[in-house]
Design a protein around this nucleic acid. Structure first.
Lengths: 211, 211, 211, 211
DNA sequence: GATGAATGAGGGTTCATTCAT
DNA sequence: GATGAATGAACCCTCATTCAT
């Protein structure tokens, strides 16, 4: 069991998360973080051991684990397989949009991070989440509702890729649709809805025999 | 007209592109680049002015401009609107996969880069490419083949997002499908095909009234 | 109120002052200074922010302010105007000779320095000191002891110029007058006396109606 | 006999002289000079051997040699000793004001320059010029017109020091006397006249028994 | 004779981290 | 437990000069 974090540690992690998401890991100095948090620079090494370990801590805290959700869905008899997939789509959309800041870090660090413990953490997460989705899809296939030969990673790529690319280009999306005057909250709600409908349509088209 | 690049300049740009894609811009030092290229460190400033300008040069060289392709498609009478969109999908897939290294840089720098001239370059590209796609879709709408109310940026997000996320998780995809023994070329050909079919299916489902 | 300087800061400033006076600002590297002081190179940026700011600090510390002295002289009823000017001459001579090292820097940087905050500092000093001398001279003029139409900046140019040029050519002066065997202290005392008598004679001739 | 200089060499020397006088020797890069002159950077090493040798060349070209003038004065029977000294004063004032740019360099390099050949050049010049002045003064002393015990270097210090300090503070002098609207030429003419009268007064007071 | 390309050395500064307190 | 001072390493860049042409 992890020891609980002090308020200064949480503040440092929140500050670091924001700065990492804006300037990248290498583009953010521990001084930047400490100054923005109003905390002594030495505290980062002191609390977390190193800048790298601070990043690991952030990853551990924010990793999206869908296990519980999928377990619930598998047991739930009130939903048909497609509805279960829809529910999973929303879990991902919400999970990413609620972790906007962290997800931006994730998108970069997936590519450039050399930290072995983060690489491993991400690999494990990908594998597990694929398995869970696999479980969910197989049920639909057994019931004859879903097609055979579903390329699960490709489904996931479309789901996460679409949400990620939307997230990265949020400003462009807002400008394109002339939603600049809208409140941030309202804008985000609409994007969330748009994404949900859009991806569910895609999933329906790909998973089912409908057409 | 740009002056043509010397072989050393090209070598530096290629080396820098690779290292930036692996370690990020801030994670790559000019010494790293120069050493990997076997060229004196000072040459980077000498040739490009600065590390930042080197990055800009890489961006300018590798920016994907779809204008010509779209122009050709608009004039082409032998293809129906959906086939034209299919062709555009392949342009994007090929463009990204052929620029794998650069596209990894793009994915990161879109998020963390502060360089104004790169930000501007990307913004202009996004706007233009959206316009071109818009032109293509409107033709299909006028002909009654495409639905009204297509969210073009969302379509693009799915196209680019899916390809990007696939690219970033190529290794995972290979392992998942047990394609490790396959040659790199063959694997890439298959991924390319998979992506093409997958996204075209999506585009068909979203754009047309079929179902 | 300025925070008091640590011993290392003082050591760095003293070392820098000496090296700047010998090799100029641009001819002295921060590594030179740090090595000569036996202190880590990074400390210069750490303590002063930059090499330039270190220079500014030196200027602030050593700026010659004659305000107090002039105020005292103005109030002093025991001295006639010429004696007051004599006293001011000695203030300048002593001020410069006691700051030999710094004054050599000043002579160069007045010409080549581009640092705006130093330029401003010097301008302010020149203006103020001119005003003080002006006050002193006007009293003598009102009493009819000094001539009208005294060109105050020209008087100052002769005072400071003579002392400066003597300072720069100290070695030549010593050799010329065969004072090489004299102790440094004794030589300086004699130079000081020579300068004092020499300039007072000049001031007397220029200021009064005597001849 | 020196080989005559090509027009490019002269241009480089003039450009270097100006830049050295503004930014100092170490503050001016060969690139600065070459670019300002519109000549290839390599030409400085090519023509002069090095940046240092270029500086030496400038010093040789601009050194003020008063030998001829003093010889003429010694022979001239139409002038009394004081008039001869007056004439010498004007030689110095004109020599310095006509070499304003170079003299600014001289003032700095006298202090910080480490170049042995320049140090030697300056030392020789100082010694010679002192001898010439000495010759001139001894004539006046023999005739009983000048005082005994004249401190010749100190006289020179006042002469050169006053002119130098005036030169360095030209702008301040102009502002102080509200001569900003005057043309540069007219201002310089007035300063020259002021200096001439001022220093001649001083010389008269110091050299003669008048009072 | 003249030059653009190229270089090793060194410039000032910032970095993440450590250590004495 | 917490911190300000301090550090060696590395950062990007510019320097004067050289060399092949």
């Amino acid at each position: 069991m992890k020891p609980s974090l002090s308020s200064k540690q949480v503040l440092l992690m929140d500050t670091a998360e924001l700065l990492f998401s804006q300037k990248g890991f290498d583009g953010t100095s521990v001084r930047d973080i400490a100054e923005a948090a109003g905390i002594n620079t030495a505290m980062i090494s002191y609390y977390f051991g190193s800048k790298e370990k601070l990043m690991e801590e952030i990853f551990e805290r924010k990793s999206l684990n869908i296990k519980e959700k999928v377990d619930d869905l598998l047991k739930d008899n009130s939903l048909d397989p497609l509805e279960k997939m829809y529910s999973l789509v929303d879990v991902y959309i919400d999970g990413i949009l609620q972790r906007k800041t962290f997800h931006r870090i994730l998108l970069c660090e997936q590519i450039i991070n050399q930290n072995p413990s983060i690489i491993q953490m991400l690999d494990k997460m990908k594998t597990k989440n694929s398995e869970y989705i696999n479980d969910l899809i197989r049920v639909g296939q057994k019931k004859g509702i879903f097609k055979k030969n579903i390329d699960i990673p490709m489904m996931t790529n479309t789901l996460i890729g679409t949400v990620s690319h939307t997230l990265v280009n949020l400003d462009f999306y807002r400008t394109y649709h002339h939603m600049e005057t809208m409140s941030d909250e309202e804008f985000e709600r609409q994007v969330r809805k748009k994404l949900s409908v859009h991806i569910k349509n895609i999933y329906k088209a790909i998973l089912t025999h409908e057409s």
